[in-house]
Design a protein around this nucleic acid. Structure first.
Ligand SMILES: [Zn+2]
Ligand SMILES: [Zn+2]
Ligand SMILES: [Zn+2]
Ligand SMILES: [Zn+2]
Lengths: 156, 156
DNA sequence: CTTAATATGTAATATTATAACATTTCATTT
DNA sequence: AAATGAAATGTTATAATATTACATATTAAG
């Protein structure tokens, strides 16, 4: 999966399968359990590149499990985010699957406000620059959120 | 007001007065109305450098107007944010006053997760870098959120 | 003063997220 | 295989954040 594929039609079935396969591998490696529920919710999130909200996810999940509750979704999200398989987009209160969870990455999220597709772009120099700046003022960084809204090439 | 003042004791009364004065000026220049409510809410936000939530703000505002409702706060926030006088910190669902509203600025927000102080640091090169990246993939940026969490020098 | 636009009041509700405690499932030890 | 303890899930309730809709009041302009 390359970044540019996300802006164009692509074989998304393969894209999804890869994400799930990587998730399996990572969870085995980390010794954590990608249970049926967790895996299914990851699958729902990765079923497109659009950012999806927790309650949208709940609606989808309820197709199979009519009496699922919000906390089911939030627990799975918590697990998936901690495992690095999903990212929260703070400015949307929505979630996307990570397509490069297997490797350490320093990414920014680009969000098309028209089509809602969101994807990560590697931006190591940006992180470098920010960490250098914070070092100068003796600020100890722990986590960084970078979200760029706009219009993708397809929607512009 | 210099950035480093925010990490150290400073004359915050002057800091607050300056923020309100700049707000007055900007609203006159823009031909918008900084009403009593709006100005008071800005004053409450700027009463410290800690990020403050809408309902915290409501509690403070209710000391003077016992029957104020959430929408009063959200309307004022909407106005103040549009005017560039306040920024929302997406990763906290909280708000801070902007100390450089009079000039165009490209800033990142540094948030100390211990003391909750949050302040803006100019980071034009970071914006440059991100805009260059997005240009390459023909993404048209409209807005950018950069929030760096960590520990400030006082809390480390 | 009248008018139209803007701001505020008021009530209800939508959306996002977590707390608390019971029960079940799973892996490990005996 | 049974006992144990930890992790996951079920269930109910509620907290926290934010908006909609419509009525009334205030303001600026003609
Ligand atoms: Zn990622
Ligand atoms: Zn788009
Ligand atoms: Zn100050
Ligand atoms: Zn600012």
């Amino acid at each position: 999966m390359h970044n540019d594929e996300l802006q164009h039609p692509h074989n998304h079935q393969a894209c999804l399968e890869q994400a799930l396969h990587i998730a399996d591998t990572i969870c085995v490696k980390k010794g954590v359990r990608l249970t049926t529920i967790r895996r299914r919710i990851l699958e729902l999130i990765c079923s497109s590149h659009k950012a999806i909200g927790a309650y949208e996810l709940l609606d989808l999940f309820r197709v199979e499990d009519a009496k699922a509750k919000p906390v089911t979704i939030y627990r799975a999200l918590d697990f998936l985010i901690t495992a690095g398989l999903v990212h929260k987009i703070e400015s949307l209160n929505a979630f996307i699957g990570c397509l490069q969870a297997e490797k350490q990455h320093q990414s920014v999220i680009l969000i098309c406000d028209q089509c809602k597709n969101a994807y990560e772009l590697n931006a190591a120099p940006v992180y470098e620059s920010l960490f250098t700046m914070s070092k100068k003022i003796q600020f100890k960084p722990t986590s960084l959120t970078i979200e760029l809204h706009g219009l993708c090439v397809a929607c512009a």
